[in-house]
Design a protein around this nucleic acid. Structure first.
Lengths: 339, 339
DNA sequence: CTGAAAGCGCTTACAG
DNA sequence: CTGAAAGCGCTTACAG
């Protein structure tokens, strides 16, 4: 790259010290009581030379990088892509830039990522934590790094977080299935200790038991790393046998998409033979022949809240933690129509 | 945040200069001929203090930030999300971090973004350029900023780029429709001057004319900002009248998804009444009742090539520009089955 | 084998 | 109203 013009170049041309130029360029001329004439002259030269401040130098001096780090599970998953987009927009409004990384639901990657972002002096972190990363998160707290957990709070860690009422939303979804006449409702979830999935499972269980169907509990788990195979197996089991499920509740959009692929292949008719509800949204749900009933998370609000909480923490290191829990909404469509 | 430990702290504890510590921490002990004992001692202290280098300071000094900037149209669009993911993975392998931004197909935003990333001293840029951003790209070249154009080359700008054979891929798609017995093939594209869309249009036109159907050309354009309305209007026009289209070719996945939503609403049967092909891929294409035939771009290869080209440019500022053009693949499925 | 010193490009408290 | 100086945390050419 061509050598960039620095404060020094401007100072030289204007015949003043770099200090003056710095004051003018950061609009602190008032405070530094720089002469109006001089300020104008400096600005003019800066313009002519097309001066662009070096953010790195500024950050090194000021201790603030105006950058936030974002850790998601996988940026190519539209759910996280949407979150990233909201955070980007919201951050930009406050003159922050976003560095991101995908943890792939992997603790080691997550740890490396956190370190890499921290070494780059991000002012704070928004993280959608991977399973088993509690320790890493605790370390953040010990080091007084401002951060916000998103999507998946850790019940045992006292940290600011944005999440939704997972148990409640799952409960509503299952209740909706029961009210539409289904009795054998299966659930497919990730095999994970993450709290948000546990909550979704407990919402499911609670609904069944409130409707006197605790005996009908049928949950299958799929590994993130063997998604396709595990889901196929799960569906085979749930829809086979003497008392096949007449409804399926998927705990996330990726589970549902993979599941629906297989359901189509098998020629199972939705919603006649099998009603379907999923967490999250997806364009794919719209194009399924029976548009899929889903639980809509308020992604925009979540992103906004996350950035807000983080910036407050950055500004005030002693801000008490704040856990925000938003409500999700059940969007009812064809895939759960009454039989 | 708590004060971080710096080289100085280690130097103090070890009773040596920061220079020594720096050499050891960057594994240049050989070159600096630091004593083995001393090196061990320094490493031990660094470990104990949990030393983490400040990347900002390093970058300021070295002039390299080991960060690349990525500009996409919209990170929440899975197509770009996938590209981002490949670039992230590939960059990480070379110890680079990625800062990203969404231009929203808007020239002003794109300009702001480029500046913001450059001020943060990214070593180079991978950009999926917005319409009308030629000037911004030319400026990059003038300033000798390493960069690679992706997805959309500018024919009038001599720059390194990764793209696919858009005209050829479109040609194949339309040819496939014609060979499957369709005669009135409509196309829906973005209203844009961007070259890759122009190429897709010309592939369409060429195919029609090669098959003696130039009179049957029916292209409709939709504005990015009025996607839904424009597509609905376009589909109404194409499928209405005395000679309704019997096939539709969508120039991108977002156009197709919006279009298929409407086609479902209208109750038009695919592929019987209307065959459908789209550029790009999407999970939604799989779940459509007649899985959609699409043109698969080699995203992984594209991302890898982009990073490779960029890093070569960063290493060698005089590297001549290189335009890589990859082939796309037509994946034939139900939506274009013979009538 | 080791260290002092300069410098990357900024900011800001301080002195005049 | 203006400027000299110190310093953020590193790296590296140079001198011993």
């Amino acid at each position: 790259m061509k050598k960039k013009v620095s404060l020094k170049d401007i100072a030289q041309e204007a015949g003043v010290s770099t200090a003056l130029v710095s004051y003018v360029m950061t609009n602190k001329e008032e405070k530094a009581r720089v002469g109006r004439e001089m300020a104008r002259k400096i600005r003019k030269i800066a313009q002519k030379l097309n001066y662009q401040p070096n953010h790195l130098a500024r950050s090194l001096k000021s201790g603030r990088s105006d950058t936030i780090g974002l850790i998601v599970a996988d940026i190519s998953n539209p759910f996280f892509g949407h979150i990233a987009r909201t955070i980007e927009d919201e951050a930009k409004q406050h003159n922050y830039t976003v560095i991101f990384g995908s943890s792939d639901e992997n603790v080691d990657k997550s740890g490396d990522l956190i370190n890499a972002l921290l070494n780059r002096q991000v002012d704070g972190l928004i993280v959608i934590p991977a399973e088993g990363s509690e320790q890493q998160i605790r370390r953040l707290k010990e080091r007084h790094v401002p951060f916000v957990l998103m999507d998946r709070p850790f019940p045992d860690v006292d940290a600011s977080s944005i999440s939704i009422n997972n148990a409640g939303a799952a409960y509503e979804a299952v209740k909706h299935l029961l009210l539409s006449g289904r009795r054998r409702v299966g659930m497919i979830a990730y095999k994970t200790g993450l709290h948000h999935i546990a909550e979704r499972r407990s919402g499911y269980t609670q609904a069944l038991s409130d409707y006197g169907l605790e005996k009908e509990k049928r949950i299958k788990l799929a590994r993130y790393s063997h998604l396709r195979d595990d889901i196929r197996k799960a569906i085979d089991q749930l829809t086979g046998g003497k008392h096949p499920a007449d409804a399926l509740f998927f705990a996330t959009n990726s589970l549902a998409i993979e599941g629906l692929r297989y359901i189509s292949e098998l020629g199972i008719s939705v919603p006649e033979q099998l009603a379907v509800v999923s967490f999250d949204e997806s364009e794919a749900f719209d194009l399924f022949h029976a548009p899929v009933t889903y639980i809509r998370q308020p992604i925009r609000e979540m992103g906004k809240a996350a950035v807000r909480l983080l910036l407050e923490q950055i500004r005030d290191g002693d801000k008490p933690t704040e856990a925000i829990c938003l409500d999700a909404e059940l969007i009812v469509r064809q895939s759960t129509a009454k039989k």
